[in-house]
């Protein structure tokens, strides 16, 4: 039996606490913020590494993005991935979720056989959560989304808790399959200094369109079924607040007078 392969889909995103939004121009200044791995994807990676620790195998991190995304893949290696593959080239730029999923699915097929694919619940910039299930559909494998716990790691089957229909469902899925994870699934480990040193020297494989045999007509702005017609940056909706700073008894009293809360009930 060949060793199992786990693939993690990981995107590099701007740090949302630092990124600046230009309210007047309606623009996001991506250069204003440091780049980091999408926070949800670190949970996906952690889950893959846990699988490997239990059952052996290899963790492969795949990212599609600009050259700088190499650092996100190195970060993934420091956190336990064995290899990093970057899909890169101008043809990929401007892809929507459909085109992104198509490219990632081609890369997964190129990488060879794979047992489980791990993706994040969503990215903090694209914010759609579509890429995981779209990849699964293209590869014709099952998926479970919004996984908040992995309860059994098997070679042929995975058991997970998934949040859906307003409840928690314990599900089993035959492998190969894909899961998308929420932040609740685990606490991603922090890489040690030694791991970071090792990862810094790691080679990242770069693949272009020819390596994954994908038709460029299906990629980028031209290949994407959706396009952004325009963008608005609405200023944060602050509220006119009445601030009460007296002793608790008085503040509460004033609040209730304003609100008439008591009487509604």
């Amino acid at each position: 039996m060949p060793e199992p392969t786990y693939i993690v889909l990981i995107k590099q995103v701007p740090d949302m606490d630092e990124v600046e939004f230009d309210y007047e121009e309606g623009r996001v200044d991506r250069s204003s913020a440091p780049l980091e791995p999408n926070p949800f994807d670190l949970n996906a990676l952690e889950e893959a590494v846990k699988y490997k620790e239990e059952l052996g195998g290899e963790v492969l991190a795949i990212s599609m993005g600009p050259k700088q995304a190499e650092s996100t893949l190195k970060d993934a290696i420091a956190r336990g991935a064995d290899e990093g593959i970057l899909l890169h080239g101008r043809e990929f730029a401007g892809s929507d979720t459909w085109a992104t999923s198509l490219a990632l699915a081609h890369a997964i097929e190129t990488a060879g056989s794979c047992d489980i694919i791990f993706a994040g619940e969503k990215t903090v910039d694209g914010d759609t959560g579509q890429v995981g299930p779209e990849v699964a559909e293209y590869l014709d494998i099952p998926h479970v989304a919004f996984v908040s716990d992995v309860t059994k790691r098997g070679e042929k089957e995975i058991q997970v808790e998934s949040e859906t229909w307003g409840a928690t469902y314990l599900k089993s899925m035959n492998l190969p399959g894909l899961i998308t994870v929420t932040k609740d699934v685990n606490e991603p480990r922090l890489p040690s200094f030694k791991d970071k040193q090792r990862a810094r020297k790691a080679e990242i494989t770069t693949w272009g369109i020819d390596d994954i045999s994908i038709d460029p007509d299906n990629l980028g702005v031209t290949g994407s079924p959706t396009r952004v017609a325009n963008m608005e940056v609405p200023p944060p909706e602050e509220r006119e607040s009445l601030i009460l700073r007296e002793d608790p008894g008085n503040s509460v009293n004033q609040l209730l007078e304003k609100l008439d809360l008591g009487r509604e009930n």
């Binding site: 559909e137 919004f146 859906t164 079924p225």
Partner: peptide, 23 residues
């Protein structure tokens, strides 16, 4: 755009090779 809808819609969109806008 419930959890179920957000998980189902992308499968349908990819199956029909068509556009999907989230949330």
């Amino acid at each position: 755009a419930t959890n179920f809808g957000r998980s189902l819609a992308p499968r349908v969109a990819m199956a029909l090779d068509t556009s999907l806008t989230a949330d």
